[in-house]
């Protein structure tokens, strides 16, 4: 740990830049009428979220975010958009915009409440023993083995269930395409 960098506020500055860009890209997704450009905004949002993961020392999540969302999901999305005839004005506001706005406002309210109300500092000074701190630092410095161990030991049943579900989806998609 080099203290000078931590205290200089450069990380906070980078965080603000990334956060602003992410929110701006997300707003583009909502407000642009051209579907392909909206999809590009979505890619920007995914990349911004990956950047925030990096700021949180979660490099694994960041790279998986780029690999899966920015790399694969967005491509499939763009392929889907290409099948639609009128992409230039494809995303227009309609009569549902007021209920949608109300729902969105409620969602924002709930998330804000949860963020403000949660006691984030669970490990107070008293509980932060040397052993706990060492464990936390190990998990941060080398997270993939920790994640892998958790996935394959404690959460192996959900993992297998997800795998089964995905296989079933694949088989179903093939069956639908073959049309029999």
């Amino acid at each position: 740990m080099t203290g000078g960098i931590e205290e200089s506020g450069i990380f906070t500055a980078i965080w603000w830049v990334i956060a602003t860009l992410t929110v701006a890209a997300a707003l583009l997704v909502v407000f642009l009428q051209d579907l392909v450009k909206a999809a590009m905004g979505l890619i920007g949002t995914f990349l911004g979220i990956a950047g925030l993961f990096v700021m949180l020392n979660a490099e694994f999540l960041a790279v998986v975010q780029i690999l899966v969302y920015a790399g694969a999901v967005s491509i499939l999305l763009i392929f889907g958009i290409m099948m639609i005839r009128d992409t230039q004005r494809g995303s227009q506001a309609n009569s549902l915009r007021i209920p949608a706005f109300a729902l969105g406002a409620v969602l924002v309210g709930i998330i804000t409440f949860v963020v403000l109300d949660t006691q984030w500092n669970l490990l107070g000074e008293a509980m932060l023993t040397a052993a706990v701190q060492a464990g936390v630092e190990e998990a941060f410095s080398d997270s993939p083995p920790v994640l892998g161990g958790l996935l394959l030991r404690e959460f192996v049943l959900p993992l297998e269930a997800a795998a089964l579900l995905l296989t079933a989806t694949l088989v179903g998609a093939i069956a639908l395409v073959k049309g029999e």
């Binding site: 490099e59 790279v63 780029i66 690999l67 920015a70 491509i75 410095s141 997270s143």
Partner: peptide, 25 residues
Amino acid sequence: DLNIGVLYLVGIPTIATVSMFLGGW
């Protein structure tokens, strides 16, 4: 020296795929 270096190697180039599509479109 990222602890996910190998994943990074295969993850980041996927952006090239997106840009290829953007260029074509």
